[in-house]
């Protein structure tokens, strides 16, 4: 003890080294403890990506559902493979991941403006239950040899039930918006020079 103390007193460099080493050990221990104590289970970015995806579970991206696609986006896959989400989803993903927002990849289908839900022509349904098995969100009701029907409020419009139907009695119909779904639209953008537009608006009025 005595020689160490004398060394520290005699040699300020040694004192500094000792102090720094001590601090390094202290903070290292602190960080190590924090890393164990506040460990985050799973990948939180996957949750955030999954929250932005439209949850149609349609598989058009080539993954069996939205979550697997979220996982592969987190692993570096392209963010433009989701036609149901369209450009809005791509933009949101790009903002989240700090990536440039690409155009939708046409390979995986085209974004449709109108929302659609499946509709079973009930007279033609033979009760094979194939569509029920195909539905990723359990939105089809029915049992073997009984008529099936789609719960429109729960249908995501993923299209997956259309293909397995042996009698082709499922149609994808656009959702009726009606007055309940109507909303105000943004006014047309004003031009930089208002007088540029005057002849047109004058003609309209």
């Amino acid at each position: 003890m005595q020689p160490l103390w004398e060394l520290v007193v005699a040699n300020p460099i040694a004192a500094a080294v000792l102090a720094l080493v001590g601090l390094a050990l202290l903070f290292g221990a602190l960080l190590g403890f924090a890393a164990e104590r506040f460990r985050v289970e799973g990948d939180p970015i996957v949750e955030q990506i999954d929250a932005l995806l439209p949850q149609t579970q349609c598989g058009q991206c080539g993954h069996p559902g939205c979550r697997p696609y979220a996982e592969s986006i987190a692993a570096g896959e392209a963010i433009n493979k989701c036609p149901p989400g369209g450009q809005a989803t791509i933009n949101a993903l790009a903002a989240l991941l700090d990536l440039p927002a690409p155009e939708l990849d046409d390979e995986h289908g085209e974004a449709s403006e109108v929302k659609k839900v499946a509709y079973i022509r009930e007279d033609e349904c033979i009760g094979c239950t194939k569509c029920i098995q195909a539905c990723p969100v359990d939105a089809i009701l029915g049992s073997a040899k009984m008529m099936h029907t789609v719960i429109a409020a729960e249908c995501t419009g993923c299209d997956l039930c259309v293909e397995p139907c042996p009698v082709d009695c499922i149609d994808m119909l656009p959702v009726e918006t009606g007055i309940q779904g109507w909303q105000w639209q943004l006014p047309p953008r004003p031009g930089l020079i208002a007088s540029d537009r005057q002849p047109h608006s004058g003609a309209a009025a």
């Binding site: 995806l53 949850q55 579970q57 969100v137 359990d138 939105a139 729960e154």
Partner: peptide
Amino acid sequence: SDFARERF
């Protein structure tokens, strides 16, 4: 979509 995720 949250509802759909839950069901899925």
